[in-house]
Design a protein around this nucleic acid. Structure first.
Length: 395
DNA sequence: GATCCGTGGAC
DNA sequence: TGTCCAAGGAT
């Protein structure tokens, strides 16, 4: 087994860098895609787009971006909005920490920067949710600062041009590519240059089937010259997904309200709502009645012959999730209409569920809440019209 | 440095 | 059905 080389390669010479700048900018001017965030110079709008685009494809972002800017058109509006409203606009996009951090950053900008995004890279970098990429992108695109914006696209383009086989997952490698990208920057039109590198990666220098024959940079691309573009970039393999088993309860009151729980403000699906659920020990089959009974007891709810009415599977980058949904029934007197909170209504001792969740509420229309995709799957499974809603007293 | 954090597109 | 991986950041 040969040890993979991980030695840094020689940089492009000055002539090649000048050629690259000229050809890339010319190509970008002619062929760039028509995207919503390219129609504005508003730093706030550019910021929103950059955060949404983190690890998220362009086509997915566009509708979210448009809705978000209509509802929250400026920093002050965002800062003064409830986090619940921000999450509602984010629901379905994933990585909900981004929404929380953007909200916090807006408030910080209001207090510390007089409501204006700072223009300097170092100050942007201090804001919540701003890393080297986002600070570079906003700094260069919105403010013309001469700083690189190195994302996954740029890493792919650069490793192919340089034929550099170092692991791009390593932070040190990424730092060195940011330094190299800094050297590639022209003295002006830096925002266009950074976007052009990303655009090339997104449309020409793609992961699969790169279009090298029409690439404006093929004359300066080492991997094209050796016919090896598909060997780049090199990255260490991800660890395999771990399996997570959950038991959830679907409880409908005699007023047709559904019991919903709001997740804590950190961690998985931070701040979003779902059916109350507990992690159960790993097993391929349904975990058994006792989990549902336990949840019922903790919530002060009678579960009559609880059965797993549905199984949901959901895959995340790092997790494979199986949710067994149990149906439950509420005691006749529990819903008197003047309690907004279950905790107030039924006086339960401190328990796992109450400690875990930020809130638990009865909801007539759970879809009004910010829901994760998994939560929507849960509701769709138990409320699917063609399957007829499973009522607790029917099991 | 390794791990966590979502979802959907592409193949 | 499985795998990879997107305009990454925080811990």
């Amino acid at each position: 087994m040969e040890i993979k080389g991980s030695v840094s390669v020689p940089p492009l010479d000055a002539l090649a860098v000048r050629t690259l700048r000229r050809r890339l900018l010319r190509w970008f001017a002619a062929f760039q895609r028509d995207l919503p965030w390219r129609k504005t110079r508003d730093p706030y709008a550019i910021w929103i787009s950059e955060v949404m685009l983190q690890q998220t494809q362009v086509a997915t972002v566009i509708p979210y971006y448009n809705r978000f800017l209509i509802q929250l058109p400026d920093i002050k509006t965002l800062a003064n909005a409830d986090i619940e409203a921000v999450l509602a606009l984010w629901a379905g996009l994933g990585y909900y920490r981004r929404a929380h951090q953007m909200h916090r950053a807006a408030r910080e900008i209001l207090v510390k920067h007089d409501g204006q995004l700072p223009s300097r890279f170092a100050e942007l970098l201090r804001l919540p949710g701003f890393g080297p990429y986002t600070a570079g992108a906003v700094g260069s695109i919105a403010f013309g600062q001469r700083v690189p914006a190195v994302d996954g696209n740029v890493l792919r383009v650069m490793t192919r041009i340089l034929a550099d086989n170092r692991n791009i997952r390593a932070p040190e490698t990424q730092r060195e590519f940011r330094a190299a990208a800094q050297d590639w920057l022209p003295s002006r039109r830096v925002g266009a240059f950074n976007q052009a590198l990303m655009e090339l990666g997104a449309t020409i220098c793609t992961v699969r089937n790169p279009q090298c024959r029409i690439c404006p940079l093929n004359a300066v691309c080492r991997s094209f010259q050796t016919g090896t573009p598909m060997q780049y970039p090199v990255r260490t393999r991800r660890e395999t997904r771990r399996h997570l088993y959950l038991a959830a309860i679907f409880v409908v009151s005699d007023r047709n309200q559904v019991l919903m729980a709001r997740r804590p403000s950190a961690g998985l699906w931070a701040g979003l709502w779902e059916l109350p659920s507990l992690e159960v020990s790993g097993s391929a089959g349904p975990p058994g009645d006792r989990w549902a009974m336990q949840m019922g007891r903790e919530l002060g709810i009678v579960l009559r012959h609880p059965q797993p009415v549905k199984r949901i599977n959901h895959t995340l980058t790092h997790r494979e999730i199986t949710v067994w949904i149990y149906a439950g029934m509420v005691p006749g007197r529990r819903d008197r209409g003047h309690h907004s909170s279950v905790r107030a209504a039924i006086r339960v001792p401190a328990s796992g569920l109450w400690d875990h969740y930020a809130d638990i509420q009865w909801m007539v229309d759970p879809h009004q809440l910010p829901l994760s995709v998994l939560a929507k799957k849960q509701l769709a499974a138990v409320q699917a019209p063609e399957r007829r809603t499973v009522r607790p007293d029917e099991i």
